[in-house]
Computed example of a mutant assay.
Amino acid sequence: MGQWLTNLRRPDGLGKDPERAARRAEQLVAIDPDWNPGQLGWTVDWQRHWAGLRVLVAGGAGLEEITPGVTHRGDDIGRWLARQVRDWAQLNPEQQHRLDELSVKPAVRPQKTAARANTKAGAAKDSDAFTRGVAALAQYIAREGTTVVSRSHVERLPDGTEHRTGVWAANQRARRDRLDTAQLTALAALGIDWAT
């Protein structure tokens, strides 16, 4: 489906006959007005991250919880959100409007580590461990096409380190009553049924 849409978004992707192309475009707009984000002034990547942010917020995550490392379907929504807040002036008015509808506001002043400055070292360490686990699990799911991971599975991350993803996933399930909303949302976004 993604490749088909990519092909349609290309020049003459809807056909060389202008009337037929216009009819096809109308049909696609009827399904999704945002089907061709390039015509709206942003990339497919921006739209995918924005849609991920909407899912996290709709799932109950507060914006303050969506920090770098919080993912949705493998995309680091927290990192993307921090860039939007920081680079607000570079966004077009419609992008700003869409973010504003989700209560996202421009940064008053650049603060790279403000969130961590007020966090205890132990909580930051736990958050980093969770983020690494989500990244490892997302990589595994993308490759294997399943959320079922054996307890003994070890995932090799892009930085060359190894992550005991099977043990980590089993621990998250066993401790699910101690996970916060953002963590449960991140796992649910990967298709983990017990996190919903």
Score class of each variant (00 low, 15 high):
R109P: 02
G122Q: 10
A121T: 14
A107R: 13
V148H: 03
L137D: 07
G145M: 05
F130D: 13
A135V: 11
G160C: 01
V104I: 09
R151C: 05
D177R: 08
N171F: 00
A142F: 03
K105C: 07
R143P: 02
R173K: 11
K105H: 05
G133H: 04
A129D: 13
N118M: 08
L102C: 10
K120S: 13
G133L: 11
V167N: 05
E101H: 08
A142Q: 12
A124V: 10
K112M: 11
W168V: 04
A121Y: 02
A123Y: 01
A115F: 03
L179P: 05
T161A: 06
D100T: 15
L179I: 07
F130P: 09
P158N: 04
T161L: 04
P106I: 05
A135Q: 14
A169M: 12
Y140I: 11
R143Y: 03
P158R: 02
P110D: 10
A169W: 00
G122T: 13
R178G: 07
A117Y: 10
T119Y: 00
A117P: 02
A114V: 12
G166E: 02
G160F: 00
D100K: 15
R156E: 12
A121Q: 07
A117D: 15
A138K: 09
V104T: 11
G122D: 11
G145R: 04
A107D: 14
L179R: 03
S150W: 01
I141A: 13
A174Y: 00
A136P: 11
S103M: 07
V108E: 15
S127L: 11
G133M: 11
E101M: 14
N118D: 15
S127I: 07
T146V: 08
R116L: 15
S150D: 12
A142C: 06
D100I: 07
W168I: 06
D128A: 15
A142N: 10
T165K: 02
A174D: 07
H153K: 08
S150I: 06
T113K: 15
V167D: 01
R151S: 09
R173F: 01
S103N: 14
D177Y: 00
A142Y: 01
P158W: 01
A129W: 03
R176A: 09
P106G: 09
S150R: 05
K112E: 13
G166C: 04
A142T: 08
S152K: 12
H163M: 07
T131Q: 13
W168T: 05
A170H: 04
A123R: 12
R175P: 00
K112H: 08
T165G: 06
T131M: 11
D126Y: 06
T165C: 07
K120Y: 05
R143S: 10
D159G: 04
A135T: 12
K105S: 12
A169F: 04
G122E: 13
K105L: 14
W168N: 06
V149W: 00
T131V: 13
L157P: 05
K112L: 12
L102K: 09
I141N: 02
V108D: 14
A169L: 08
W168D: 07
S127Y: 01
W168M: 03
